[in-house]
């Protein structure tokens, strides 16, 4: 305990002393303040611009050939409507190992970091079916409440293949094939289990703010049956739409 407290206090002192030394009040460094309008300065008609003129006059008394007029351009910040966030629901099917195929419902929210990457959080829910053992013996291993299968997933996707879908001769829709990976947790039978998901998806932009997405994922977790700890592969496929804002 004493050792840990010493480490805690020394670390805190170190971090705060060095960090606060360069601390500026945030109110003086808000992002929008550095983009204030820069007033246009006067044209450089002073001694700087007079030098070339004098040089040419000294040679032959002819007027200046080049009169550099250098003007600094003002910068005016204009807030453009950005569309880096994406939300939407989805529906599909999930094949839970040993439990059969059931309907899946979910929702997701994504933030597009760059044109290559987007981070995504999703939640999904299904109610599992009966295991093979239960169907053969008629013995129920889980109560109806324990069959609720709810997960969340936090992941990263990479936009791999941009493309277009052509509808007839006059209309084309942008599309994107992306790869996804993530980690999450599954709550099933009153227990939380760590899960890893990998998969791919396809996005078709219906217009500039609405898209349709189809995904295929493999959600791997430890099997809830038997306590063996073997990995269970739960393959899910779902479609949904998303709006950008």
């Amino acid at each position: 305990m004493d050792r840990w407290l010493r480490v805690l206090l020394l670390s805190g002192l170190c971090a705060l002393a060095t960090g606060c030394a360069s601390l500026h009040l945030p109110s003086f460094h808000l992002p929008f303040m550095k983009d204030q309008v820069v007033e246009t300065p006067e044209p450089l008609d002073g001694p700087e611009t007079a030098l070339p003129t004098e040089a040419t006059n000294a040679e032959g008394g002819t007027p200046a050939v080049i009169h550099p007029v250098v003007q600094r351009t003002a910068v005016r910040p204009i807030q453009i409507d950005s569309q880096d966030f994406e939300v939407g629901p989805y529906v599909g099917v999930i094949s839970i190992q040993d439990f059969g195929v059931t309907a899946l419902y979910g929702a997701r929210a994504a933030y597009h970091i760059s044109e290559d990457f987007f981070a995504e959080a999703s939640i999904g829910h299904t109610t599992t079916g009966r295991t093979s053992y239960e169907r053969l013996t008629g013995v129920a291993l889980y109560t109806p409440q324990q069959r609720d299968f709810t997960y969340y997933d936090l992941g990263l996707s990479y936009n791999l293949l941009p493309g277009e879908i052509f509808l007839g001769r006059r209309r084309a829709l942008n599309s994107m094939l992306y790869l996804s990976g993530g980690v999450g947790a599954v709550r099933f039978a009153n227990d939380d289990r760590f899960s890893v998901s990998v998969g791919a998806g396809y996005r078709v932009m219906l217009n500039n703010w609405l898209s349709v997405r189809a995904d295929l994922r493999d959600r791997v977790m430890k099997s809830p049956i038997g306590g063996l700890g073997r990995p269970a592969h739960n393959v899910e496929s779902y479609v949904g739409f998303t709006v950008f804002f």
């Binding site: 983009d35 246009t40 044209p43 550099p68 003007q71 351009t73």
Partner: peptide, 27 residues
């Protein structure tokens, strides 16, 4: 303006119009 030849009238009396501001997106 940078590439065009200067006119022969007096440059000191000429006041070029201020340029339009440059676009900047704080976002």
């Amino acid at each position: 303006r940078a590439t065009a030849p200067a006119r022969s009238d007096s440059p000191t009396t000429e006041q070029p119009p201020p340029p339009a501001p440059t676009f900047s997106d704080p976002g």
